[in-house]
Computed example of a mutant assay.
Amino acid sequence: MQEPIFLESVFQEKIWGGRQMADYFGYAIPSDQTGEFWAISAHPNGPSILKNGPYAGKTLAEVYSQAPELFGYPAEPVFPLLTKIIDSSDWLSVQVHPDDRYAMAHEGELGKTECWYILDAAEGAEIIYGQSAANREELSEKIAVGDWDGFLERVSVKKGDFFYVPSGTVHAIGPGIILLETQQSSDTTYRIYDFDRVDDQGQARDLHIQQSLDVVTYGPVANSKPQTLQVDALTSTLLVTNDYFTVYKWEVAGPLEMTRTAPYLLISVIDGTGQLEVAGRSYPLQKGEHFILPHTVTDWRLEGQMTLIASHTS
């Protein structure tokens, strides 16, 4: 299979969602409370389905299991990464994710380390990125009395910012933000605080205080330091690399020949238009497109004026 893999993927409606994905990407969203688009996903809670090639109609999880040669015969038993678009018209819950050890023991799935590339942000937009309590006892006390402003760290954000969010980091995305998230393939979230919201049935969402206290890490969050390299028609910025994934921003300005250096690539077009050429065939690309370059694609050509986010397992 010497061709890219294009996908039909799932939108998720959320109490805090909005309609920025329609405005920013032109997506046909299901409602004005569309919070997430699981653009490249093999997770059972939001599986992507292949649109092209000999495996069209199968889920990404099925293809990962049945055709391991497309992914370089990976060691991981499940497809390890997930690419999302998130639109927050209101605050997401203040939350934390477990690491692999805790998640496998208690939830039966991978932990969740993630990172965010801010696609756009309203003036004054903020996130919660870390917390100041020194230890479990202090954090437990502050949660018990609801001293949220006393320990949650707020950070202003703007278009083009990048944040690395390792497991154990207390965090929340604020209103007026649309971002691309690269994460481990996990759907485990422990809520610490949900701004006293209720759903349309008047019910508050569950909190997970005990689990949160079990997994929170202490001390300041160490964000990554992106590194940029320009070669010919490509400006490549290494956004982060860790034990789970490596993420790049590629700014393409003209024709560009590329060769595979990772088992496979997950690619999202976040701006511009152009085309991808593989094995003599051309595929038009536009803002909002997401695809996989499998292991069987060893070289390809990009042309146009585009900004891409590319990721692979580390």
Results as ranks from 00 to 15, higher is better:
Met1Pro: 13
Leu7Gly: 02
Gly26Asp: 01
Tyr27Arg: 11
Pro30Tyr: 09
Gly35Thr: 08
Ala39Thr: 08
Asn45Ile: 08
Gly46Leu: 11
Asn52Pro: 08
Pro54Thr: 10
Ala56Thr: 08
Thr59Ala: 05
Gln66Glu: 15
Leu70Met: 14
Gly72Gln: 06
Pro74Val: 10
Pro77Leu: 07
Pro80Arg: 11
Pro80Gly: 03
Leu82Asn: 12
Ser89Gly: 01
Ser93Cys: 09
Gln95Lys: 02
Arg101Tyr: 10
Met104Arg: 15
Ala105Tyr: 03
Tyr117Thr: 06
Ile118Trp: 08
Ala121Gly: 07
Glu126Arg: 15
Ile127Asn: 07
Gln131Cys: 13
Ser132Tyr: 07
Ala134Gln: 11
Gly150Asn: 08
Gly150Trp: 08
Phe151Cys: 14
Arg154His: 14
Gly160Val: 07
Asp161Leu: 06
Ser167Cys: 12
Leu179Cys: 06
Gln183Tyr: 10
Asp187Pro: 00
Asp200Val: 12
Asp200Leu: 09
Gln203Lys: 14
Arg205Gln: 12
Asp206Met: 03
Ile209Gln: 02
Ile209Met: 00
Gln211Asn: 14
Asp214Cys: 04
Asp214Gln: 11
Val215Ser: 05
Gly219Ser: 12
Ser224Asp: 10
Lys225Pro: 01
Gln227Ser: 14
Leu229Ile: 14
Asp232Cys: 06
Leu234Thr: 00
Leu234Gly: 00
Ser236Gln: 14
Thr237Met: 07
Leu239Gly: 09
Val240Leu: 06
Asn242Lys: 00
Phe245Trp: 07
Lys249Thr: 00
Lys249Phe: 06
Leu265Arg: 11
Ser268Thr: 15
Val269Ile: 14
Asp271His: 10
Asp271Ser: 14
Gly274Tyr: 05
Gln275Gly: 12
Gln275Pro: 00
Leu276Gly: 02
Val278Cys: 06
Tyr283Asp: 06
Pro284Lys: 02
Leu285Ala: 09
Phe291His: 02
Phe291Cys: 03
Ile292Pro: 11
Ile292Val: 12
Leu293Met: 06
His295Leu: 03
Val297His: 11
Leu302Trp: 04
Thr313Cys: 12
